[in-house]
């Protein structure tokens, strides 16, 4: 049985009387310890799928199951300990007036877990930040360092599943490499399951075992890593996406 099962998921926002069908009838499965990619057109509902899993988007149809069990609404603490998310923009995802220490201790406080000092220092070491950074504020950190703090926060509760919304698109090439290496290492060490959104097919190819291509709220085509690398896609949109990424090929 797959760890994450999404069946005919639909999300519809209603604003000012209009209906926005952000996600329509999307289904996919992610096995435990797999890394699953989401790519596709801007505005096609990739972030919305991640938010729907977290209970932050209005689900109007379909089902999301984790470990075979449908998710409760609201999601609750048990869910928080199982699934965490890393946001795209490291400049927007850390509270500007909280120190790294506060950011990392908050999840422990919410869940009434003790031993925070040791855990925070360990968490910083795990993401490759010097413990001296513990009492810094976000504005004293670079983009890559902030993203590491955000990843450390997501890992504080030892979740099984990490949802990553374009974790490196705001980062430069060298910091992207550091962050991707960090994520791969943590996944191997802890047996994490990833669902990862990215625009860069090279990043998806580097990180993911399977990938779902989306357009305009709908799933277009699901590909394995091998199919992606050998350009074995069948739908025109997936092809176009691949063709536009020609400069990202090995020997490109």
């Amino acid at each position: 049985m797959a760890l994450i099962e999404i069946e005919n998921l639909s999300v519809t926002f209603t604003t000012a009387g209009r209906k926005v069908r952000a996600v329509q009838d999307v289904s996919f499965k992610v096995e435990a310890q797999q890394s699953f990619g989401l790519v596709g057109e801007s505005g096609s509902g990739k972030s919305t799928i991640l938010r729907a899993i977290c209970g932050m988007a209005p689900i109007t149809g379909g089902q999301i199951r984790i470990d075979g069990k449908p998710l409760p609404t609201p999601r609750g603490r048990a869910f928080a300990a199982q699934v965490q998310m890393v946001f795209q923009d490291p400049y927007a995802s850390l509270h500007p007036r909280h120190t790294v220490d506060r950011v990392l201790s908050e999840p422990l406080a919410i869940h009434g877990q003790g031993g925070s000092d040791a855990k925070i220092e360990q968490a910083l070491i795990d993401v490759g930040l010097p413990p001296a950074f513990r009492f810094r504020y976000p504005h004293q950190l670079s983009g890559g360092q902030r993203q590491r703090v955000a990843i450390a926060r997501a890992l504080m509760l030892q979740p099984q599943i990490l949802l990553l919304d374009e974790p490196t698109s705001a980062l430069d090439a060298s910091v992207q490499a550091e962050t991707l290496n960090l994520l791969s290492r943590l996944r191997a060490e802890r047996g994490l399951t990833f669902v990862m959104v990215s625009h860069d097919l090279a990043v998806i190819d580097h990180m993911c075992d399977r990938v779902l291509v989306m357009q305009n709220g709908q799933a277009v085509e699901e590909l394995s890593r091998e199919a992606l690398a050998s350009a074995a896609m069948t739908t025109p949109y997936a092809r176009a996406l691949f063709a536009a990424s020609a400069d990202r090929m090995l020997e490109g």
Binding site: C54, M56, A92, S93, E106
Partner: peptide, 17 residues
């Protein structure tokens, strides 16, 4: 609507917190 509020809500934080 900022990401840092969403991130904390995702940790299971209450509205009061």
């Amino acid at each position: 609507n900022s990401d840092y509020i969403a991130a904390t809500r995702l940790q299971g934080a209450s509205s009061l917190r």
